[in-house]
Design a protein around this nucleic acid. Structure first.
Lengths: 148, 148
DNA sequence: TTGCTCCTCACGTCACGTGAGGTGGC
DNA sequence: TTGCTCCTCACGTCACGTGAGGTGGC
């Protein structure tokens, strides 16, 4: 092991921990969003540096990525927290145990919700396609120079 | 023509005008949203009844539908107003005229924006699918009763 | 008169954006 | 010392939600 040295520009740590700037950049969210998610209990930093800087591990990055991916479905942050906490509970539970089976049932409900919202969104995308086509028609109509 | 009689429950008018409740129901938006769109100059009622009730014609319903369909793309109401007003201008302009050709150029830029946001959304939908699959895997793993 | 839909304030909420002023390590 | 990234308030914004109190036509 390389020991607890290094960290160029204090951007990343030997432990694989990263500052909020790196995390936000990687996932594609604003610093404000990440901090806000902490405010509402959706994403807690793994730890803090001596100077008070938030430091995040890979599990937090994974969690943040899930959050970002769920955004287009229009879940509230509270609903996302519910689902993500459920997943964390699931990771700790023994498969087949009573607790795990109860979790699976709840999880199935969440999955149904995800799928149904996904289908809604897909229908809306189809509507967007029709819109784009009619916009193109309109544009060609307007630009018509009578030379064809 | 049947003359200016009727209107059961004052819900619709002979002119094809409808009250806000009917409009909102048809398009699938809240009364508050429709009123808010008027506040920001995005959708003006065709007229008002004697009692002050908002009345909307088919063109307004069409416009509201476009607004609803653009929502998943994440345009701000101001950006939508820009596009919709552009379409209205286009409907009034003579095809091939200088004004119409300028409009067509602007419209093409808007179309590019719509298409690029649409593709972004599609990529996010793919991510959602992967998410749903891993949720299902997790659920089956938890529910495993060792009996298969 | 009752019931329904509508009306206008106006304050609340959610998910952040945006400075303001300050700290901390190369 | 300069430059960069980070910090904590705290107020602003966007797109509505949600009553509060009142009106209007079958």
């Amino acid at each position: 092991m390389a020991g607890g040295v290094a960290s160029r520009h204090a951007a990343s740590d030997d432990d694989g921990l990263v500052q909020i700037g790196v995390l936000a950049e990687r996932v594609g969210l604003s610093l404000r969003s990440v901090r806000y998610y902490e405010e509402v209990g959706l994403l807690t930093p793994t730890t803090r540096s001596v100077g008070g800087f938030r430091l995040y591990g890979p599990e937090q990055e994974e969690r943040l990525l899930l959050i970002k991916q769920m955004k287009p479905l229009g879940f509230s942050l509270d609903e996302m927290r519910e689902l993500l906490d459920m997943l964390d509970d699931g990771a700790k539970a023994t498969p087949g145990s009573k607790k795990a089976r109860r979790l699976a049932v709840e999880l199935d409900r969440e999955i149904d919700e995800v799928v149904s919202r996904r289908h809604e969104l897909e229908k809306q995308l189809d509507a967007v396609d029709r819109l784009a086509r009619s916009l193109r028609t309109m544009s060609r109509h307007l630009a018509a120079t009578d030379e064809d």
